[in-house]
């Protein structure tokens, strides 16, 4: 059914006016609503206690088995270990696993981490885990590599030196033992 021109005209006029008034009522209502904005550096959300935001690890719990580094799809975790000598006791972790390795280096490169969490289930001692920390910005890319080893450079050097000395002593003992068994073979082995 066709409506007449004048009828349409006033209908449209009324529609324009009324819809404008409806819109203005809505915006006026929002004028007094509290803002949803959070003034970030001054105020921040409290994260849930177990929020999974960044990879971290408890150094004292680590056995240095390297399961997490093997599980990582992007090779973010780099671990360096040295076997502890038989006379040195590194203690046990909370779940009773004996620590046999010195963990010289445990680095997580947050620049490469994809936060998949695949490194966490393989850990036998639950040393590696997520922490609720989301402010990971750094001015230099290198600072995104988190060093979790608590050993100082001097301590690492000392452990390495002791290991080398032990190895050298062992090799010497072995070679002298071999020399007594077969003296002629030592000459051909040495370069």
């Amino acid at each position: 059914m066709r409506t007449s021109l004048s009828e349409n005209y006033f209908k449209q006029l009324w529609r324009g006016v009324s819809s404008t008034l409806i819109g203005m009522r809505v915006t006026f209502g929002h004028l007094f609503k509290p803002a949803v904005t959070l003034q970030y550096p001054h105020e921040r959300w409290t994260m849930p206690e177990r929020a999974r935001l960044r990879i971290a690890m408890t150094y004292s719990e680590c056995t240095g088995c390297g399961a997490c580094a093997r599980a990582c799809p992007v090779d973010v975790i780099s671990i360096e270990t040295l076997k502890a000598p038989a006379d040195e006791d590194l203690g046990v972790t909370k779940n009773g696993t004996k620590k046999r390795l010195h963990v010289l280096k445990f680095d997580v490169d947050n620049a490469k981490c994809i936060y998949c969490g695949l490194c966490i289930p393989p850990c036998p001692t639950e040393a590696i885990h997520f922490v609720p920390d989301y402010e990971a910005m750094q001015r230099k890319r290198g600072n995104l590599i988190y060093h979790f080893s608590i050993l100082s450079v001097a301590e690492v050097d000392a452990i390495r030196r002791r290991d080398q000395e032990a190895k050298a002593a062992a090799a010497k003992a072995k070679s002298s033992e071999a020399a007594t068994v077969n003296p002629s073979s030592t000459k051909t082995d040495e370069p």
């Binding site: 004028l31 949803v36 904005t37």
Partner: peptide, 13 residues
């Protein structure tokens, strides 16, 4: 400020 308040924001602060 008015535009921010109408959009539930804060505007310059």
């Amino acid at each position: 400020k008015v535009s921010a308040w109408m959009q539930d924001r804060l505007g310059p602060m």
